[in-house]
Nucleic acid binder design. Structure first.
Lengths: 237, 237
DNA sequence: TGTGACAATGTTGTATACGATTATGTTTCA
DNA sequence: TGAAACATAATCGTATACAACATTGTCACA
């Protein structure tokens, strides 16, 4: 079985109920950090055993994740980590291109000193994770950077959308990333930070736009394997 | 108790399971048509009794609706139809302004003859509902018009977001609508249809943008009552 | 009469049980 | 030997049961 406990104390302190939210967060993190691969089966009994809860709460967590399209529920067949299609991948990044540049502009107009220092430390964490050979964690932090910008823009609703899109982006990257770009484009985040720090909304919007384009171009979204990877069939070649 | 059965046969034919989805759809429709007011309590036992299912499936439905922000779940206290704050209302329409105009443009570029006739009939239904004195139903149809445009644009992901936003808009309108504009702005939909039919993406984008602005301006979003309507406290004035 | 503690009631959170569906393994017959 | 049919096992969908929590009503006491 895959290890899902990830070291952390799993927050037994603040837990009264919210059991399903805890399970959901743990599963989401495991997906974000690529410890759970697309297509992995999430049996209710098994997950429940791992976290010491009943199927009831696991079901609730899985339904939440399914709503965010991180897992796919097949009727009477179980829950599986989602496998976004190429088309879905394109759509996710189109949606991000629609939402994030303008949000970056708003963020530049509302950013505070505290935000800047937080972002700066965030980027340091990213670099540290990369240097320590934890690409999964680095990727997760990289996503959080985008979410942080939405938070700074003070747009809770759009922040929620971006949160969903970034979660799905994590799956997309797991499926379609091509290794070539090794730098993990973290310079883009530095540039964005500078634009925000100087309050330059135009520049922030433009940087975010091109950053997203870079991201898409680092993916291999040719229509090969367009059909989802239920590929026992993919072996027929 | 409020009547939720709404006449329709409630689809006993296609039902094997999917019971929770049926309950969710029924509740969502009741909210969209303003048969359920913001703040209304949705007791699990009560809802279960209405639809003849157990609390288990009601809970699943309520959690889905909570994820869409149509209902609010208070821990150990139950589910209530959401009451968007003024701030939330603004954010919802800002998000719509970000997503829908560009989506209308895409729709204009991809619309088919069949789409046009479907939209045309849709508008007729809207007018009919208005004439027959069913403003709730007219409002619901009006929302579906927007969703239909997103569908035509062939952007499933963005369509999902727009669907959520329109559902919340329905609540916002229930709370903040001011009666003045009587025409219910349905001419805007006619104009949009024409722009789509002629494939004029620029015009469609522009019309959608101003349509949304009109919608916002028909709301009363002054910060009075900015705090949510848990207002037994609101009576302290 | 007003305030605080306590009991009663109702509702939600979670676990478990059972029927239904799907997947798997074995057997049998051509 | 191969394929179809059946039996078996595993997993999910739903209902029900019980415990935990919140709310409300009542009573005692200052």
């Amino acid at each position: 079985m895959m290890d899902l406990s990830n070291g952390r104390p799993a927050g037994k302190e603040a837990v009264k109920d919210a059991a399903s939210e805890r399970v959901m967060a743990e599963l989401a993190l495991a997906i974000h950090e690529h410890r759970l691969q697309p297509g992995a089966k999430l049996s209710e009994d098994e997950v429940g055993a791992v976290y010491g809860v009943s199927r009831t709460v696991v079901r609730a967590a899985l339904q939440q994740l399914a709503h965010d399209r991180l897992v796919e529920l097949r009727r009477n067949r179980g829950a599986y980590v989602a496998q976004p299609s190429v088309r879905e991948a394109r759509e996710v990044f189109e949606a991000r291109a629609l939402l994030e540049p303008r949000t970056a502009r708003s963020a530049a107009e509302r950013v505070t000193e505290a935000d800047i220092t937080a972002l700066r430390r965030h980027i340091e964490d990213e670099h540290a994770a990369l240097d320590m050979g934890e690409p999964g964690r680095a990727l997760h932090l990289s996503g959080l950077f985008h979410i942080e910008i939405a938070r700074i823009a003070q747009q809770d609703t759009i922040e929620d959308f971006i949160r969903q899109l970034i979660a799905r982006s994590s799956l997309i990257i797991a499926l379609y990333w091509q290794r070539r770009t090794a730098l993990c484009e973290s310079h883009a985040h530095d540039a964005l930070l500078n634009a925000l720090a100087s309050g330059n909304g135009d520049l922030a919007e433009e940087l975010m736009k091109s950053h997203l384009l870079d991201l898409v171009s680092s993916l291999d979204l040719r229509n090969v394997n367009s059909a989802p990877r239920t590929l026992q069939e993919a072996l027929g070649g």
